[in-house]
């Protein structure tokens, strides 16, 4: 075969780079394993919107297949000739970087976003304007609404007094806002549109009978109570001015500590 002969002659030229050819194959395999691990363990939910599960799984399989072909080619000693490519990195650099990141990611699991991130990104109860139509599909029974359902409902009809007296049963993590009095905490959740990078926190202020110090930030709580309308201080997300605003507040009756759920985020 003519082709085989020509490939052989290539391989003899590329021999000095022998360890480098392995890095490409290992980078592909390690990323395939990493994505497969995320897909199987469900950890992908901490990173991206579940809609893209198929993409992640598909990529994992493709990467593993490409990696195996590459290893097979290396073992068969037919290295490619790609000298025509304009290269920015020295050979093996990009793959090396990918390999290091994949190994680090296999060792260090992704972290659940914390109250610290929520405070940094600025909590909001009105920025979900684009999902307003969904408000009409949420559970009609107030006590069956989740935290995100409540926010959608309020966005669809932003009149706090209209919900006064409705029973509520919601879960989320604890957030302490400086501008709120000591007997208030924020019950929050992160909402993901595309991936963890764009996750933003939403929340409902909760009025406690005790001090909020009893519930440290980031603990997960399930709170039963009744909705009331109150005028409370609220901080503007953009210019950080604190103004008094009429808001919907959950007056807590029963508070139960719960373990961090397997999928702690809400998805848009």
């Amino acid at each position: 075969m003519i082709l085989d002969k020509s490939l052989r002659s290539n391989s003899s030229q590329n021999k000095p780079n022998f360890p480098l050819v392995w890095i490409d194959g290992l980078a592909l395999l390690s990323w395939g394993i990493l994505l497969l691990k995320y897909a199987i363990t469900g950890q992908y939910k901490l990173l991206i919107h579940p809609n893209y599960y198929g993409l992640v799984l598909g990529s994992a399989i493709l990467l593993l297949a490409l990696g195996m072909i590459k290893v097979k080619l290396i073992l068969a000693r037919s290295y490619g000739n790609s000298s025509e490519h304009i290269s920015l990195f020295p050979p093996g650099f990009g793959s090396g970087l990918l390999l290091i990141v994949a190994i680090a990611a296999l060792l260090i699991p992704p972290q659940i976003l914390t109250s610290q991130t929520a405070l940094k990104r600025g909590i909001s109860d009105i920025s979900m304007s684009s999902s307003q139509p969904q408000a009409f599909r949420v559970a009609t029974k107030p006590e069956a609404r989740t935290l995100i359902d409540w926010i959608r409902t309020i966005n669809a009809y932003p009149e706090p007094d209209a919900y006064s007296g409705q029973p509520a049963n919601v879960s989320g993590f604890v957030l302490h806002l400086k501008e709120l009095p000591d007997n208030y905490l924020m019950l929050s959740r992160f909402v993901i549109t595309c991936c963890a990078v764009d996750a933003y926190p939403i929340g409902i202020p909760v009025k406690l009978e005790t001090n909020r110090r009893d519930y440290s930030p980031d603990t997960w709580l399930e709170i039963q109570g009744e909705m009331i309308a109150e005028t409370i201080p609220s901080k503007d997300r953009i210019d950080s001015n604190i103004t008094e605003q009429r808001s919907l507040v959950l007056a807590a009756k029963a508070i139960k500590s719960i373990p961090t759920p397997a999928d702690p985020y809400s998805y848009k």
Partner: peptide, 13 residues
């Protein structure tokens, strides 16, 4: 690191 991974996992496909 988590955000970094999130970007990579979303972009990789």
């Amino acid at each position: 690191f988590t955000l970094f991974l999130s970007l990579l996992v979303e972009a990789m496909p």
